[in-house]
């Protein structure tokens, strides 16, 4: 009777697993920059949407200055006392937010993986 598992089988399976892991890693890495735009909301109203691909600095007029640079967005400066939004740092992944409560400013990363999430229930 022939053997149930041969050397070539193990090589094949390991190779396929490596392929799968590489694919997953690639997906995770690309998904990190999948966020396409930063949506800025001031006091519940949409202020503007800025693509992450273009560097720019936006003065929101509330004392907050938002910067888009190298595919991520961050609060450059704020006049509030807490400075929480500034300390939040750079964000780039879809769904991440920067909130400035005193000035009711919300920055959201949009786009990317919507509907193509690999995680399933």
């Amino acid at each position: 009777m022939f053997k149930i598992l041969r050397k070539a089988d193990i090589i094949l399976i390991v190779l396929l697993i490596v392929c799968g892991l590489a694919g997953s890693a690639f997906l995770v890495m690309t998904q990190a920059d999948m966020g396409s735009a930063a949506k800025v909301t001031v006091d519940g109203k949409e202020y503007g949407t800025y693509p992450l691909s273009e560097d720019r600095t936006v003065d929101l007029g509330t004392g907050n200055i938002v910067s888009v640079k190298d595919g991520s967005v961050y609060m450059e400066s704020a006049t509030c006392t807490g400075q929480d939004c500034v300390h939040e740092g750079k964000i780039s992944k879809p769904g991440r937010t920067i909130v400035c409560l005193p000035h009711k400013v919300l920055i959201e990363i949009e786009g990317g993986g919507d509907g193509f999430d690999t995680i399933s229930k």
Binding site: F2, I4, L5, R6, A8, D9, L12, I13
Partner: peptide, 11 residues
């Protein structure tokens, strides 16, 4: 190729 067992083939 005659290198694989039935498991390798079906994988």
């Amino acid at each position: 190729t005659d290198l694989f067992s039935v498991i390798g083939i079906s994988v």
